[in-house]
Amino acid sequence: MIQAQKKGVPQPPSKIKGYLTAILVLLLLWGSSVNTESSLSEFIIGFPNMLDLLTQMIPPNWSYFDKITGAMLETIRMAVIGTTFGAIISIPVALFSASNIVQNSWIFYPARFILNLIRTVPDLLLASIFVAIFGLGALPGILALTVFSIGLIAKLTYESIESIDPGPLEAMISVGANKIQLIVFGIIPQIQAHFISYVLYTFEINVRAAAVLGLVGAGGIGLFYNKTLGFLEYDKASSIIVYTLVVVLIIDYISTKLREKLL
């Protein structure tokens, strides 16, 4: 009787795998903390320094807002232009990466590989390389944002191209449409709302990115972080932070509302 009951209860799965994973994760964490010389005591010792910094940051220097408005507008301009160029270039790139448009795997795999490659390089690194080439200013920032936007928009777009309804395309092929007609009348109407939504999303990200690109000399409001923090003017630095936060939140709000309307 008891044995029969025992048979009915399945054995719980072995827990060795879970334990091994836990040990592995703990080892990873331990190794990392040794490698980065992180210690809680150091943080606690340094904490008063940070509180001191925070008290120096509050209240922000409100009169500084006039001075940085120009740089803030430049930041938004950089994001607008970078996103636009990125969006324009990513249209052909996305078309070449979509396997249901270009059936030749010798074309769409390399295109996707290049996209993956672009996305592995962070935008700030791109910016510092472009600064080395073109010198200080907004141009390297715009170029960095453009390249970054291509990686993001083209990837999202080619994925949504691949998931479109093939019905209209088949109907058009059967009446003899060529590739251009296929794209203009079959694919664009199906993905344009998604595409615009991705562009807006990338714009949101680019505004945030553009705000720090100045740290490596690529224009925008980030230049002022270097200036104010270098001279230990923390009240001015905090006014930059507050300004950036307000602008980013407003742009995010508008962009999210627009995207909700689109889809």
Binding site: V212, I241, L245, D252
Partner: peptide, 16 residues
């Protein structure tokens, strides 16, 4: 929205 680089600058002041 608080940029991580700015956060890093602040933590550098705290822990070096």
């Amino acid at each position: 929205t608080f940029p991580e680089l700015v956060m890093a600058i602040m933590f550098i002041k705290a822990v070096g």
